[in-house]
């Protein structure tokens, strides 16, 4: 009787072990398959479009007339690029300076304040950023445009970029803080004992050492910014045009998808075109994401 229950126990134990290992393996395979499933899904859905138009035409034509079957993505791509690069141009110096300040100069209590600030900023939902953009940044930009003698509703590329910049700041900043923290203190010691001032040490030694990390943090920021949807959509104006200035409205790719998907499915090729937009997002974002990680992995040791 007793030996039976021990046997039973053993069987149950092995079974549990095998079952859990099996489920773990399933999860593992799911993760490995996921990017490919996504990519193939997007390719399949947008392949209809490739049948009718060449890739070059899709990317570089600026004629967007879905009703007559003309799908030129150029205005959307340009809008996305504008918004992304202006936002990174705003966020990059702010993040770099703050990261240096927090890791090299700041007193303990500043750190104690900043850690939750960064965390909360990172956790605020996109749509809240959008509301904030509408309440504060839109009127602000409209006013600023006035100073330059440009009339603008405030719903513009610049507004989208500012909102986006604030959104990616916590993300980029966290990476940069980590980058500066991992630099060994002995490098500072070496530089200081050669008669360098603290600032010279930061500028010529630490930032040089951090260089690959800095570049990749910006790259990751770009990948984050490029796909951001709701917040940008709410403030960027959404007019199909090639924007000629930062006070003009733009229409980035994610906004295109969000505004139209699932609605005008009766127009032929329309959902295929929107899937193509999603494909562009996927490819660009993954490129920047992987590129940045490659930089930090391969160049960190070489400097």
């Amino acid at each position: 009787m007793r030996s039976f229950s021990i046997l039973n126990f053993k069987v149950r134990r092995t079974l549990r072990e095998n079952l859990s290992a099996f489920w773990m393996k399933c999860c593992y395979l799911l993760i490995l398959a996921m990017p490919f499933i996504l990519l193939i899904g997007l390719l399949l859905k947008s392949s209809l479009l490739f049948g009718e138009h060449s890739l070059m035409e899709l990317i570089f034509s600026s004629e967007w007339k879905p009703l007559s079957g003309k799908f030129g993505f150029f205005p959307f791509i340009i809008s996305s690029l504008w918004v992304t690069f202006i936002s990174i141009a705003i966020a990059a110096p702010v993040c770099l300076l703050t990261a240096i300040y927090l890791t090299q100069y700041a007193k303990r209590f500043v750190l104690k304040i900043m850690q939750p600030v960064i965390d909360i900023l990172a956790g605020i939902p996109s749509v809240i950023y959008g509301v904030w953009g509408i309440i504060i940044i839109v009127p602000f930009v409209s006013k600023v445009a006035g100073w330059f003698n440009v009339s603008s509703s405030g719903y513009s590329i610049l507004t989208g970029a500012i909102v986006l910049a604030v959104m990616i700041i916590p993300f980029v900043l966290n990476i940069l803080i980590e980058v500066y923290k991992t630099i060994p203190i002995e490098l500072s010691e070496a530089s200081l004992s050669l008669g360098a001032t603290k600032w010279e040490t930061i500028k010529k030694v630490l930032t040089r050492k951090a260089y690959p990390g800095i570049i990749s943090s910006f790259g990751l920021g770009v990948s984050r910014a490029f796909g951001e949807t709701i917040a940008v959509l709410m403030v960027v104006g959404n007019v199909v045009q090639i924007p000629s200035g930062i006070f003009q409205a733009g229409y980035p790719l994610p906004a295109l998808i969000a505004n139209n998907y699932g609605e005008m499915l009766s127009i032929p090729l329309y959902d295929s075109a929107l899937m193509f937009a999603a494909l562009i997002l996927f490819v660009v974002v993954t490129f920047f994401n992987m590129g940045s990680r490659y930089i930090i992995m391969h160049y960190e040791k070489k400097i």
């Binding site: 993760i31 490995l32 996921m34 990017p35 996504l38 997007l42 990751l220 990948s223 984050r224 490029f226 796909g227 951001e228 949807t229 994610p254 998808i257 969000a258 998907y261 929107l274 899937m275 999603a278 997002l281 996927f282 974002v285 993954t286 994401n289 992987m290 990680r293």
Partner: peptide, 15 residues
Amino acid sequence: FLDILWGIPSIVYGA
């Protein structure tokens, strides 16, 4: 792979 998936914008997941 997690990094790749983590980087993909939510709108792409939505679509």
